[in-house]
Write a protein that binds this DNA or RNA. Structure first.
Lengths: 208, 208
DNA sequence: ATCGATAAAATTATCGATAATCCTATCGAT
DNA sequence: ATCGATAGGATTATCGATAATTTTATCGAT
């Protein structure tokens, strides 16, 4: 659905009113499917709708991202830990391919592709560790993180390449299999990105 | 919505076909609101719908509950830990009231009320610890746990009272504030309930 | 001029109906 | 008898329109 893309990419600013009939006409379809789509977006937390008052694009507050990161810390290390023993050469190949893609996207300043790949990288461990419920949770989280990153990085691009390169040591240490070292690096990686995001976000959320 | 209740209580068995027109006529309303409701239930994982093939009540597999418990372990202790310092006498009053309610429901064999209160008890810490995102996650989880318990305990009632009484020491130890003891007791409590549920579930999932 | 009440416009939620799709039973060919 | 094709029925997805509600604009009273 194209609506979601627009919201996640930050093209539709928070508070924007989503008029059912307008969207329907725009897409050349009827109201029913539009309402369905809005219902889904509402469940995902991308829009907010109050009875008889229609839907608006949800805000995305710093506060909420902090909460999400608290949750992420709880579940991501667990997923990585459970993956370690399961990773074979094929997996390392995939991870490396994602890393290469990130580096390439960074060089082209293709922010959206970069973010998608970043999420794919981390999502890989959730998929590998085999807990469908937690994987699904991660996918929900990832949408919001994507959106936040897209919005905060939209005006001023930070050094994407250095973020991309931060993933190389992760792959490297995963090969060695030393659990404690892996843990340290992943936690550090998460905190680093979080810190950078925080910094970038300051004073920039207002303009969105 | 009454549909959700019926599913969670296990009155609508897995695989049951939800016909839009039938439900609409039954409730004396049109298709549109029914479809909306189904969309919500789909997002919650209570029903499954495939394109052009309508909706059926979702199965609830042992496997999925195991996944949920793995997730629960990751987040619940964290919530409790963060709550400890925040609990005052009013909170202990609430928790004790919930406990009393559970004991009373157990004596009356009111399974549904019992389950609701059990979830309220554990949800209390998620609410108290202040992370809205994780609280929301817990609420989603709680719905599925309720449903599983309702279905597995429907035919043969285990000893509800002893489960209720398992909560008293939890309140007790929370008052002392010894983090390590609290942790041990909560983890133990969770594993105990999980084990009991597992046992009860055996051979009984087939009849649903 | 400001405020509240009222009317007009806009928008949502709901409705009943149509078109598209899927399922089932019947029939005919091998 | 078995299999595939086909027609009929059932059900979903979509549609355009109506009813209910909210928002905006207008007007008159203070």
């Amino acid at each position: 659905m194209a609506l979601r893309e627009s919201i996640v990419r930050g093209e539709l600013y928070p508070g924007y009113r989503l008029l059912v009939l307008e969207i329907a006409n725009e897409l050349g379809i009827s109201q029913a499917p539009v309402r369905e789509a809005l219902e889904r977006l509402k469940q995902e937390g991308l829009i907010i709708s109050r009875h008889n008052k229609g839907s608006i694009v949800a805000e995305i507050k710093q506060e909420e991202i902090e909460e999400i990161y608290a949750l992420r810390e709880l579940i991501e290390w667990d997923a990585v830990r459970k993956s370690i023993r399961l990773l074979d050469e094929k997996d390392f190949g995939h991870l490396t391919a994602i890393y290469d893609g990130m580096a390439s996207a960074a060089k082209k300043d293709d922010l959206f592709r970069f973010i998608d790949l970043d999420m794919d990288f981390h999502g890989y461990f959730f998929a590998k560790s085999g807990n469908q419920t937690i994987l699904h949770l991660w996918q929900q989280i990832a949408v919001k993180l994507k959106r936040f990153q897209a919005i905060t990085n939209k005006i001023y691009y930070p050094d994407l390449l250095s973020i991309a390169e931060g993933h190389a040591p992760l792959i490297e240490v995963l090969r060695t299999g030393d659990e404690e070292k892996i843990r340290q690096l992943f936690i550090q990686h998460m905190k680093e990105v979080w810190w950078r995001m925080n910094k970038d976000a300051e004073g920039r959320m207002r303009d969105t």
